[in-house]
Design a protein around this nucleic acid. Structure first.
Lengths: 140, 140
DNA sequence: TATTATTATCTCATATTCGAGATAATTTAA
DNA sequence: TTAAATTATCTCGAATATGAGATAATAATA
């Protein structure tokens, strides 16, 4: 039952994702956003109005953290809460005009950053990477 | 300048690593360790006596966080600090007997967990994944 | 209808992380 | 030798994350 080298794919996967995370974090600091805040805005930017829970499920943070981050973004006027008329337990959130304007600025730079980090792969390689990662993800 | 699908390799990489992280976190909770604590113990288990800074460099957390996590582990008797005789600014840390015993228990299960998560890849696929991830990592 | 279970959000206490600055020791250079 | 720069660690405060429990509403079932 000898082990090759402490599972190199695992180490590289974790190192690479951590490095990418750091890079994005650094970039977002310029916009005075944490990654969590950015992730919330990104979901709303792409999907429009969502419930707090929908957003939380997308970015996988706890309900306590959601309340906190939504509070922060609301205080800064980047998004707004609105009660749901059908179900009074539910609260919707949407980007404000300011929030949308901010995202119009940020998103192109963000896409560019991400694409840059992956443009060492040609489209075949990208496709292979996708397939391999899917295999791994389905086993986790 | 159309974008295919918001960079699928990126999304999958981040999703997969996050899922793996969660899985390990969950596993470590059973041992009453956070991932950071485990990472510190792992470095000491594999490399033996290290300075606080060496450990911090390995696991990439700040010196403030190092002090905190080393304090916690020292209080639980899993590791010990010893002054360095050559350089009095430096502090060494090593696993205690208890710490080593704990790691003797944990590590086989940890290796098994990690190997399980990646055993859907055959050795060719693992090699390809390594190469692709290296390409990406070098561009980050 | 009344009861129970589930769901969504919020509140609060606690834990973790970081960054800035403090302290203390060592090294380098004048 | 003295002064300045660097290094290693620690302290402290702020920001962020979590989990448990509270609250309130809805849905399911007897």
């Amino acid at each position: 039952m000898e082990r090759k080298c402490s599972n190199l794919p695992f180490l590289l996967l974790m190192q690479t994702s951590k490095a990418i995370h750091e890079r994005i974090k650094e970039e977002m600091t310029k916009n005075k956003l944490t990654i969590t805040e950015f992730s919330v805005l990104e979901v709303l930017y792409q999907k429009g109005k969502q419930t707090i829970q929908q957003v939380g499920n997308c970015i996988l943070i706890s309900s306590g953290s959601m309340t906190y981050v939504i509070d922060k973004l609301e205080q800064r006027g980047l998004l707004g809460r609105t009660a749901c008329p059908d179900d009074r337990r539910v609260i919707h959130v949407t980007l404000t005009y300011d929030g949308n304007e901010l995202m119009n600025e940020i998103m192109p730079k963000y896409y560019e950053l991400v694409d840059d980090m992956f443009d060492s792969l040609n489209s075949d390689e990208a496709e292979i990477l996708i397939q391999l990662l899917k295999k791994v993800r389905n086993k986790v």
